[in-house]
Simulated scan of single mutants.
Amino acid sequence: MNTLEKLAYSIPNFATAVDLSVDTIRKAIDSGDLIPAYPTKAGRKPIISKAEGERWLASLPSERPAA
Rank of each mutant, 00 (worst) to 15 (best):
T16Q: 14
R55A: 01
S21E: 14
L57C: 03
K41H: 08
W56I: 06
P39F: 04
P61N: 06
N13R: 14
T16N: 14
G43H: 04
L4E: 08
D33L: 07
P46V: 04
I25P: 01
I47F: 08
K27T: 01
I29E: 00
T16S: 15
W56C: 00
D23Y: 07
I47N: 06
E52I: 00
I48Y: 03
D19H: 10
G32W: 09
D30M: 03
L7E: 15
K27P: 05
K27V: 00
A17I: 08
S31H: 08
K6M: 12
R44I: 11
R26N: 13
A42F: 07
T40Y: 08
E52C: 02
K6L: 13
A15R: 10
S10R: 08
N13T: 06
R44T: 13
A51K: 07
A67R: 14
Y9S: 12
K6C: 10
A67C: 10
D23N: 13
T40I: 05
L57Q: 04
R55N: 04
I48D: 02
S59V: 02
Y38S: 05
P65V: 07
A8C: 14
R26G: 03
E54C: 05
R64Q: 14
R26I: 14
E63I: 00
S10C: 02
A67V: 00
L20R: 12
P39K: 03
G53V: 05
L60H: 05
D33G: 10
F14D: 04
S21H: 11
R26V: 15
S49T: 13
K27I: 00
P61M: 09
A37S: 12
D23H: 12
I35F: 04
K27H: 05
A66W: 02
L57K: 07
T3M: 14
R26M: 13
L4C: 02
L60S: 03
T24M: 06
L4Y: 07
N2A: 10
E5V: 14
A17H: 13
I11S: 06
I11A: 08
R64K: 14
A28K: 00
V22T: 15
P46K: 12
P61C: 09
D23V: 15
A15M: 11
G43T: 01
S31L: 09
G53Q: 02
S49V: 12
A28M: 00
A51Y: 10
R64W: 12
L20S: 13
P65M: 08
M1P: 06
E5W: 10
P39R: 05
T40D: 12
P65S: 10
S21I: 05
M1T: 14
S49K: 12
S10V: 02
A67N: 12
R55Y: 03
S59M: 03
S62C: 15
A42N: 13
A15I: 03
R64H: 11
R55S: 08
V18I: 15
K50V: 09
M1D: 12
T24H: 04
P12A: 11
A37D: 06
G53I: 01
K41I: 15
L7Y: 07
A42M: 11
S31Y: 06
A58V: 00
S59N: 02
D33Y: 03
A67I: 00
R64E: 15
I47V: 14
N2C: 08
